[in-house]
Design a protein around this nucleic acid. Structure first.
Length: 785
DNA sequence: ATAGGGTTAG
């Protein structure tokens, strides 16, 4: 228009043939502004009747014109044109339809080029019925080329109709390597590895894309060695790999644990300029270097990139986040030229994983305020954060968002919802979510089982566990750790044996639960057996397993083994140190425990509240009052506020040293409700040091906190006795008799042929208790004669 | 045929 104004006259109307040639020469993606008026004028000519003489030459041009126009329509439909062009084609389906009608009238619809473009145009407009009819017409007119078949195969694959794709593929006059590639890729993505391999063996020759698809497929199915095998085969067939192949091969190396090989292939590919300008490859490299822990290399790739997009920036954000610099990651998020859901989701997930769930939720709100719509990943992370905050109201609000977005039944989202409701003690809501999932996967089952265990409902958990259609290692870990959490240690070991019997191989997580069960049962034999298995399976190097092993031996009283494991561990975390410190303290080695604590601080391992509890426990057992006071004050330095249990330890150590007033003062200062145990400890010390005044106050407090505390009455009675107040002591004893108190039951167990049998003092729960009693009577009788 | 983030178990 502007050109017209400047020159003062309209551009000359081109004759139809010239238009046809111009349009035919143009590639849709190259289409730019002058094209629109050109097409407009052509459309007018079409509408005004055919001025074309029906000779073969014009037909050919006309067919080409139709084809080109259809191609443009398609390009516009899939959004692959310049803005000027796409605005012209904003309602372009009618144009395509009229062109189709025109081509039919002119008798050129069956032309090879027109027919194939009709097919692709209808496909682009998602008119599958018209597309299929065009395909049938093509085949009937013998105008179907290899491309036509390839295209239809990929159409079916895109629609997820693998059966139709396969049928068409099998019936193809001659299968092209393109179709082989499409089929192999589709099969691999659906996990049908065997079928893909069968096609691979049938395929007479392979292209780069075909081999690469096989490699990518194997990597997707975690068959990394097979992927490397294909790469080898490809090289021996002298097919040159390209940048995409290299990315897949590097992934295969990483998956197979061949990090050295991975890095040398990266080096080779960089040196051969394979990775120079491919933005996708460079984005992958950033992530690869991050996962290898080489932040500097990741930064270098980012800095040297000529073109950076959202993905590059998000990958950079994650490099910051992964190296612990969440503030840096947040700065990247705000400095990015463009950010999307993934950028937000990444940061939210990282805060959640680092344990700062509150910040994750805040970021989610910030994201919504920024006008960004959450997606499935986002929901998973933020729901997981709500779960750890036990924030039922916030979680339910996000649940409402998922309903609104129509993704509440997605397996990722619903698994997180189940977790959230269970952590907020709403098992029935979790069950309802579970029931509403149309296609449950293993994680959905595992989440609900874990949720029931978390709420102490092992019967429901066990029931679900039995009903689940397939179990993976996480399922077994969930049920074993569920029993351990609910202190059903024997059941935990039984489940562990069932796991072994089912052929499922236990991992480091399984062993940390199993060893904890052994430690609590003081079962050295079982613990040693588990220890042997960890060595056999090569998981004893893990921090979790090592910690659990060292803890198990310490709790079983075998401090030598415990210490040996501790000192041989390649990696120790604060839990490891705490367990060892506690083990020494509980076995009476207070001094050694304190020395180890000082070693821990020297290695710059930050202590937590459990560590301080262990060290205060050590001081209290060793009667080290001054040290205890020192460490109690040190807690403030580490920003840890003492909990009830810490106060109890302090009261115990002060009271036992006779510093009763200080102990009472500390108890009065306890910020939250103090433990009954701490008053009992004070009361006990009052009887030792014959202090009636504090003793009576302590007894009163103890009575307030726990009406049924038998120990309190006994202690008070003892204190009166120690002070010579016999009458009061006798009164206490009488009072004690008058109250029906629930006595703590005793329990013992025995292992027979690998199976545990437990006996309880208050009820006969063993299924064979009648028979056992009879045998016992027999034995007693035999002894008496 | 390739790139960034996500659910359960310790």
């Amino acid at each position: 228009m502007k050109a017209a104004v400047r020159t003062g006259r309209r551009p000359p109307r081109p004759p139809p043939l010239a238009v046809a040639q111009t349009v035919a020469r143009m590639k849709p993606e190259k289409a730019h502004v002058p094209l629109a008026p050109l097409l407009k004028s052509f459309k007018v000519r079409l509408a005004n009747g055919p001025p074309l003489a029906p000779n073969s030459k014009t037909f050919k041009s006309y067919a080409e014109t139709c084809a080109s126009l259809l191609r443009l329509c398609r390009a516009a439909a899939i959004g692959n044109t310049t803005p000027a062009c796409s605005s012209y084609f904003s309602s372009n389906l009618p144009l395509a339809l009229s062109l189709h009608a025109h081509a039919v009238r002119a008798g050129v619809a069956a032309d090879r080029s027109v027919a194939s473009h009709l097919l692709t145009t209808y496909a682009a407009f998602a008119r599958s019925a018209e597309r299929d009819r065009a395909f049938r017409d093509c085949v009937a007119a013998d105008a179907a080329s290899s491309f036509t078949y390839d295209f239809m195969v990929s159409e079916y694959v895109k629609a997820g109709d693998i059966a139709s794709a396969r049928r068409l593929f099998d019936g193809m006059p001659e299968r092209s390597v393109v179709s082989y590639t499409t089929m192999v890729d589709a099969l691999m993505k659906r996990g049908c590895v065997a079928d893909a391999v069968e096609l691979y063996e049938q395929c007479p020759l392979g292209s780069v894309a075909f081999f690469t698809a096989m490699i990518a497929g194997f990597v997707r199915n975690e068959l990394h060695q097979n992927a490397l095998g294909i790469f080898h085969k490809m090289l021996s067939c002298s097919v040159r790999p390209n940048d995409i192949t290299f990315v897949c091969v590097i992934k295969a190396c990483v998956g197979a644990g061949e990090f050295g090989l991975a890095m040398s292939i990266v080096g080779l590919a960089i040196k051969s300029n394979f990775f120079e300008k491919n933005i996708e490859v460079q984005n992958y490299l950033i992530t690869l270097y991050r996962r290898m822990g080489d932040a500097a290399a990741a930064f270098k790739v980012f800095d040297e990139m000529e073109v950076k997009d959202v993905v590059s920036w998000t990958a950079l954000l994650d490099v910051f986040a992964d190296s612990g610099d969440l503030d840096g990651a947040r700065r990247v998020l705000h400095a990015m030229p463009e950010r999307n859901v993934v950028s937000w989701a990444t940061l939210i997930a990282r805060y959640e994983q680092k344990g700062d769930a509150a910040e994750a939720v805040r970021l989610y709100c910030e994201m919504l305020a920024d006008g960004c719509r959450p997606n499935i990943s986002c929901f998973s992370s933020v729901l997981s954060a709500s779960a750890s905050l036990q924030d039922l109201r916030g979680g339910a609000r996000i649940h409402a968002h998922t309903l609104k977005m129509g993704c509440s039944t997605n397996v990722f989202v619903s698994s997180s919802l189940i977790d959230m409701y269970c952590k907020s003690k709403k098992c029935s809501d979790a069950q309802r979510i579970f029931d509403s999932i149309p296609e449950k996967n293993i994680v959905c089952w595992n989440s609900l089982i874990s949720g029931y265990s978390y709420n102490g409902k092992m019967v429901e958990a066990e029931d679900l566990f039995k009903k689940m259609p397939a179990k993976n290692s996480a399922s077994w870990n969930t049920i074993v750790s569920g029993y351990v959490q609910n202190r059903q240690f024997i059941d935990a070991l039984k489940s562990f044996n069932a796991m072994l019997a089912s052929g499922q191989i236990p991992g480091k997580i399984t062993f940390s639960s199993v060893l904890l069960a052994c430690a609590n049962l003081c079962s050295v034999e079982m613990g040693k057996m588990a220890h042997a298995k960890t060595i056999k399976l090569g998981v004893e190097e893990s921090v979790f397993v090592g910690t659990a092993l060292s803890d198990m031996y310490a709790k079983s009283g075998d401090l030598e083994s415990s210490k040996r494991i501790f000192y041989q561990m390649p990696e120790r975390n604060n839990v490891t140190w705490t367990a060892m410190i506690q083990g020494l303290a509980e076995n009476g080695f207070a001094e050694e425990s304190i020395l180890l604590f000082e070693d821990m601080l020297a290695t710059k391992t930050p202590p937590n509240e459990h560590t301080f509890l262990a060290i205060l426990f050590a001081c209290s057992h060793g009667g080290l009052v001054e040290k205890a006071i020192h460490y109690f004050e040190t807690m403030q330095v580490w920003g840890i506020s003492p909990k009830e249990k810490h106060y109890t330890c302090m009261v115990d150590v002060l009271a036992r040293a006779g510093r009763l007033t200080e102990a009472e003062d500390l108890l009065m200062k306890t910020p939250s409700k103090s433990e009954a145990n701490s008053w009992a400890a004070l009361l006990s010390a009052c009887s030792t040091y014959k202090n009636e005044e504090i003793g009576e106050r302590a007894a009163k407090k103890l009575h307030e906190l726990e009406k049924d505390n038998t120990a309190g009455y006994v202690l008070l009675s003892n204190m009166y006795a120690s002070c010579g107040r016999w009458k009061d002591a006798a009164e206490m004893r009488l009072l004690l008799k008058g109250i029906t108190l629930k006595k703590e039951g005793g329990c013992s167990w025995v292992q027979v042929r690998g199976e545990y049998h437990a006996f309880f003092s208050w009820e006969a729960r063993h299924p064979l208790s009648l028979e056992i009693d009879e045998i016992l009577d027999l034995l007693t009788w035999e002894l008496s004669i």
